[in-house]
Amino acid sequence: MVGADLPAVLAIEEATYHEPWTEGIFRDCLRMGYTGRVLEVAAGPGEGAGLAGYGLISAAAGECHILNLCTAPEQRGRGLGRLLLRALLAEGRLAGAEQAFLEVRPSNSAAVALYRAEGFETVGVREGYYPAVGGREDAWVLRRALI
């Protein structure tokens, strides 16, 4: 992920979340040296090529944290989120991480199912972590060994 990717990243972010990350947040992540990856798809019959998803990960002290992972609404259900997740976990391993962490909304059943299928387990709850329509939503903290 580079600065030129941000318009497409923001379009997906805004189509997905009630309170999306801002361009400034993404720019700060890149400036801090976090690893960002984008997934582009080739044009198929009747569809255009373009950015289908993105992810950001930070790594330090033997751990990595998946900060954001998202696929475009029209691209969901094709295994692209799994592909991005595995790519981010590989980045964590390359950075020396022995375990990976992330937060997920319990209401995001597709994401929860993906993370469980990829070996993540719940290790905690962050109460009121996410903004939600009409209030706040908890986050489940998930962890997976990388070694």
Rank of each mutant, 00 (worst) to 15 (best):
D138L: 03
G33Y: 11
A139L: 02
M32T: 14
A97K: 10
E98T: 14
Y130N: 02
D28G: 13
A8V: 00
A52G: 10
I25E: 02
A139Q: 11
G55I: 14
T71D: 10
L10K: 05
A139T: 13
Y130K: 00
T71L: 03
L142A: 11
L30Q: 05
I57Q: 13
L102R: 15
E98D: 06
Y34F: 14
E118W: 14
I57G: 15
E137R: 09
C70F: 04
T71A: 15
T16N: 02
P131I: 13
Y17D: 05
F101K: 08
L56E: 12
R82I: 02
G36P: 01
V112I: 12
V38L: 01
N68P: 03
A95C: 09
F120I: 04
G33Q: 11
A8E: 06
V141Y: 06
A113Y: 13
L94Y: 11
A42M: 08
V112N: 09
A61V: 06
P73A: 01
G77L: 12
R116P: 13
Q75H: 05
N68R: 14
E103G: 15
A49F: 15
A49H: 08
G53Y: 07
L146W: 06
A110M: 08
Q75A: 03
R144D: 13
S58Y: 09
E19S: 06
S109W: 13
L94P: 14
T71Q: 04
P106I: 12
A61F: 09
V123Q: 01
I25D: 06
R144A: 12
